[in-house]
Simulated scan of single mutants.
Amino acid sequence: MQQLPLDIELKADATFDNFVTGSDGNSQLLSRLQSAAQGEADFIYLYGEPGTGRSHLLQAFTQHYSENLPHSLVAYLPLENSQLVPDMVEGLSGFDAVCIDGFERCVGDKAWETALFNLYNQLKEQGKTLIISGAEAPQALKLTLADLKSRLSAMLIHAIQPLSDDDKRLLIQKKAKERGLELSDEVANFLLSRQQRDLPHLLGMLETLDQASLQAQRRLTIPFVKQVLEL
């Protein structure tokens, strides 16, 4: 995998295997991304609210593509990275697969929109792969370039469905297990009933509990969780 000259790291735990799909629609998206990571050319635009796993899926795709096709080139661009500039996109047409994460950050910026419009056309002409994540569907984006909106609208568009509370419980228990923690159904349900339900908050809370558990050498019980989180 060729890397851009930037400090962009992929999370080691961003894999297809540990992505909790929840709905059938999310399962279909995962299957499509897995096929693309095997080298099947595709143009996919996925969107969803924060915490639905957009970055996880793009990073998982990048890592799996690199492992499955070591002689092919794949690039991952998180547009939240302030070091990225539109001129860097110019050379990406030589890559076999490109992932653009956080597309909403370039909306209204003509230089970025033009660069990504050109990249889209170049990759499409060469029969390559482009995966884009955004906060909204293409039709809802207030783009400067109308032609870019039409290109994005022609991609396979998939809305990532938020997880149910049961799926969120399964996810935080899975993440806890990866950390060597035992998170019982009772404690997990307590956390879901007392805390914000968005995944970034839940996972941040799990990080806090992990550190406290390690330091105090305590199991995760409801009294201990109440103490640590000051509930």
Score class of each variant (00 low, 15 high):
residue 194 R to P: 00
residue 161 Q to V: 12
residue 103 F to G: 01
residue 181 L to N: 07
residue 160 I to Y: 04
residue 113 E to A: 08
residue 146 A to G: 12
residue 121 N to A: 11
residue 143 L to D: 06
residue 180 G to T: 03
residue 178 E to Q: 15
residue 129 T to R: 02
residue 139 Q to H: 10
residue 176 A to L: 05
residue 108 G to M: 12
residue 108 G to C: 05
residue 146 A to F: 10
residue 141 L to T: 00
residue 193 S to H: 11
residue 159 A to K: 14
residue 96 D to K: 05
residue 119 L to Y: 03
residue 129 T to V: 04
residue 137 A to F: 01
residue 138 P to C: 11
residue 154 A to Q: 11
residue 127 G to Y: 05
residue 102 G to A: 11
residue 155 M to Y: 06
residue 189 N to H: 11
residue 167 D to T: 03
residue 109 D to E: 14
residue 161 Q to R: 13
residue 111 A to Y: 10
residue 150 S to G: 10
residue 176 A to C: 11
residue 102 G to W: 06
residue 130 L to V: 02
residue 190 F to Q: 02
residue 133 S to K: 02
residue 143 L to F: 05
residue 97 A to E: 11
residue 110 K to I: 15
residue 106 C to E: 10
residue 112 W to S: 08
residue 135 A to H: 11
residue 106 C to A: 12
residue 191 L to G: 03
residue 106 C to P: 00
residue 96 D to W: 04
residue 175 K to A: 07
residue 111 A to S: 14
residue 196 Q to I: 01
residue 115 A to V: 06
residue 127 G to D: 09
residue 129 T to S: 15
residue 106 C to W: 05
residue 148 L to Q: 06
residue 194 R to I: 01
residue 145 L to V: 04
residue 112 W to F: 09
residue 122 Q to G: 02
residue 196 Q to H: 12
residue 144 T to V: 13
residue 162 P to D: 11
residue 120 Y to E: 09
residue 158 H to K: 09
residue 122 Q to T: 09
residue 143 L to M: 15
residue 121 N to G: 06
residue 134 G to N: 04
residue 173 Q to T: 04
residue 125 E to G: 15
residue 147 D to Y: 04
residue 113 E to I: 03
residue 195 Q to A: 10
residue 185 D to C: 00
residue 114 T to H: 10
residue 158 H to N: 08
residue 191 L to A: 03
residue 115 A to L: 08
residue 147 D to Q: 09
residue 160 I to W: 10
residue 190 F to N: 02
residue 114 T to P: 00
residue 107 V to R: 08
residue 170 L to S: 14
residue 156 L to R: 08
residue 192 L to G: 02
residue 192 L to P: 02
residue 162 P to W: 04
residue 99 C to F: 04
residue 157 I to K: 07
residue 98 V to C: 08
residue 102 G to L: 11
residue 195 Q to H: 07
residue 106 C to L: 15
